[in-house]
């Protein structure tokens, strides 16, 4: 427990909280900029089992922000490479690597054994699948997204607050993935750190979550904004109407 001593002494955490965390299972979908940061902190914190979903390989243009990988890793599959690196950070954590993309017909099977899902995705269509799956399986998830100098983060707890489609009601799920978006390296670092904090709050039951509140980081202006939203009674995903 010495490894976790500085968080165990946090108010409300204790050895019970740490023991619970050891039994918890978190799935990180996407091991890129956001995923790297989430995976580092969740591994360090001692989440018992961490699943890593990513079908991509490490490329040179990833390295300014995807801090899990080094130049030696170019061409390696991210899910497996990440698991190997993280095992060195904390050998007590069990890693389950899935070098696959998120698909509607396999997502239920993938998600069902995890307690919390982390969004490290890079496109709207896959997030639509993630949202629908979490609604079906009643899984809380932490959304993060970044572009240019901006990042957003919020937490979705199915049926207790709004869902992702309550925000993006006009998304069809057929949106094409943008091959390359401009991004300031530290932005996913900022957003991923907050996501990891939200996951740990969900698992330990500490604090109030970012449910119905989206934080927006605007790096150029050095400003945070908060965007509040409620359940959409006409939401195409979570409304019973």
């Amino acid at each position: 427990m010495e490894r976790y001593r500085r968080q165990i002494i946090l108010p409300g955490w204790g050895t019970e909280g740490q023991e619970k965390l050891r039994r918890d299972r978190v799935l990180v979908v996407g091991a890129g900029g956001l995923g790297s940061i989430n995976l580092y902190y969740l591994t360090g914190a001692g989440v018992g089992t961490i699943g890593i979903v990513d079908d991509d390989t490490v490329t040179l243009s990833n390295l300014h922000r995807q801090i899990l990988y080094t130049t030696d890793d170019l061409g390696r599959p991210k899910a497996e490479c990440a698991a190997q690196k993280l095992k060195r950070l904390n050998p007590e954590v069990v890693f389950e690597a899935y070098p696959i993309s998120l698909k509607n017909d396999t997502a239920d099977e993938l998600f069902k054994n995890y307690d919390v899902i982390v969004d490290g995705l890079d496109n709207l269509a896959a997030r639509n699948v993630l949202n629908a799956t979490c609604l079906r399986l009643n899984k809380p998830w932490v959304h993060g997204a970044v572009s240019e100098f901006y990042g957003v983060v919020t937490t979705f707890v199915p049926h207790q607050g709004p869902c992702w489609r309550c925000l993006y009601r006009n998304i069809t799920g057929n949106e094409k993935r943008k091959e390359e978006f401009p991004i300031l390296g530290p932005v996913p670092g900022v957003i991923g750190s907050i996501q990891a904090g939200e996951v740990l709050k969900l698992l330990t039951g500490l604090g109030s979550k970012l449910v119905g509140r989206m934080l927006v980081w605007q790096a150029l202006q050095g400003r945070w904004s908060e965007f509040s939203f409620t359940r959409d009674p006409y939401c195409p995903a979570c409304s019973s109407r």
Binding site: G30, G32, G33, L34, G35, D119, G120, L121, D122, N123, L124, R127, G144, A145, V146, S147, Y150, G151, V152, L167, Y168, R169, I171, E175, R177, K178, F181, I183, P188, F227, S228, F229, T230, D232, Y234
Partner: peptide, 26 residues
């Protein structure tokens, strides 16, 4: 004022009109 609406909504005095893009990267 925190509720979804459409482009053809006629704005009223004191309304808070918010526009948000899709941020998709990870």
């Amino acid at each position: 004022n925190g509720r979804h609406t459409d482009l053809d909504y006629e704005i009223q005095e004191g309304d808070q009109v918010a526009g948000f893009p899709a941020i998709a990267g990870g």
